[in-house]
Design a protein around this nucleic acid. Structure first.
Lengths: 259, 259
DNA sequence: CTTGACCCTCACCTTGGGTGAGGGTTCATG
DNA sequence: CATGAACCCTCACCCAAGGTGAGGGTCAAG
């Protein structure tokens, strides 16, 4: 059976232009031309087109598809596994983005604060995270947060602004960092940080580095190096250990719950 | 504080060209130029840039961002909710694609059959599904399959080729459709179809229409209209009802299990 | 006064095609 | 046989979001 471009296009749900495009990229040459110069595709061409479309549908770029179609023994396994990794990474990224956008929309619906401001801070945080953590780290981080109770996460996230404001006020009023008041703030701070970052110390260190490097985040959240230094003076090692232990407990119970 | 392009680019993790591009699109005009014509950005520009980046990071096209930045009261909620829907749809699509690719890779790892062939059939099926079902239908369909037991799904998918082959053989040998042998095949067929499509009749009808329309799928799977007609002659209404009831039971238990 | 690191504008390249422009072919119908 | 509809051809510009030069000016340090 032979087909003209239009017929083949209709049969495969493509446009004529797309077939022309495939031809220009040397992905699919019609096996013949009519006397008037019309493209004529035969069954072999149709099979090749279907292989092409299968690869294209998987999201593999056309350029790469050319080599795959022409190789008599295409290294499909490698291409496929590599491609799966790519799709997986995109998917994770989309998932994170969607979560962030939904959080923003949710807060906006509750009229909590300026939507623009929310979006600015949230996306700024996402950008910073993507700059400072690699794919694997972000995934570990996601898993930690997924294991936690959603409402608890939201509750503690909602707690941040007040806590930061309290700390800033104390620092501005020059309250002694050793005072019980500041110690309580610092203790809660540590607990929240530990709950947020999870028990992974490498991630905690990277987080600290991120806050140190990203002046925009400092500005957005109000968490400045000066404030951190002030709180650090209030924090004894035993408090740190207590906060870390609390996190470990959370990790243990949430892992247990996930099993 | 003022910045040159290079400084601003570094501070925000962009390239100089990107800032030039933003300027050409009238998204971010530097508030001044030096005597030599150098771009000079001030703090207001930086703020605007950050708002721009927040929107860009959410995946909103630059063209749309222009209007949002210039509106003094941007309709962000609408844009955001619309955008969330877009991201969600993309996410679903990616998820489906990833599942399909993983299934193909899995089978290839077990050396079940030609990888090219697998990819061809699987992606052909995905394309057909996307042509014949809309976003909402596909999502309902996904939910149905997610609710089922993964191993059971795989097992029945693995059963298809043999069943189709048995049916083809029977038809080729001109076995009486009313014979118990063919009736057994048809009965199992109905059960598998019902388990695959779920209890939604609209989806079942669309599936039938899809198989009728997609000659490529017919060829790939071996399920031709002739074969379906042959099996239909073997199927009594009571068998249909029995198969449908079996599916309803699965639906009930899997919903119960999900609760 | 030169060197290296900036900066400027202009302009073509990328992906996967869409959308014409301008003109030829095929086929059925009057 | 002419005419109109529905095909087909090539050529060529257009999109988003920048990348990558080319060719030339500017700035600060040595």
């Amino acid at each position: 059976m032979d087909y003209t471009v239009g017929e083949l296009a209709k049969r495969c749900g493509l446009t004529v232009r797309t077939l022309h495009h495939f031809e220009k990229l040397k992905l699919l040459q019609p096996s013949a031309r009519s006397a008037a110069g019309y493209r004529i595709y035969n069954d072999a061409d149709v099979l090749r087109l279907h292989r092409l479309l299968a690869l294209r549908h998987s999201g593999i770029p056309l350029k790469e598809i050319g080599a795959l179609l022409d190789a008599e023994d295409p290294p499909l396994i490698d291409v496929l596994t590599r491609h799966i990794a790519v799709v997986e990474a995109q998917l994770q990224r989309q998932q994170r983005l969607l979560n962030a956008l939904q959080r923003v929309a949710e807060r906006a619906a509750r009229r909590e604060a300026g939507l623009t401001e929310q979006l600015l801070v949230t996306m700024g945080m996402m950008r910073a995270l993507e700059r400072h953590f690699d794919e694997a780290e972000l995934r570990r981080f996601d898993r930690w947060r997924e294991a936690l109770d959603r409402d608890a996460v939201r509750a503690s996230e909602a707690e941040w602004p007040a806590l930061i404001e309290a700390a800033r006020a104390a620092m501005a009023a020059d309250v002694d960092p050793a005072s019980p008041q500041v110690k309580a703030i610092a203790q809660r701070w540590l607990e929240l940080v530990n709950q947020f970052t999870g028990p992974d110390e490498a991630i905690q260190r990277k987080f600290a580095a991120m806050y140190a490097a990203e002046t925009q985040i400092q500005h957005d959240t109000g968490v400045t190096p000066a404030l951190l230094a002030y709180l650090r003076r209030a924090v004894t090692d035993e408090m740190r250990a207590a906060a870390a232990q609390a996190t470990q407990r959370i990790a243990a119970t949430s892992n247990g719950g996930a099993r």
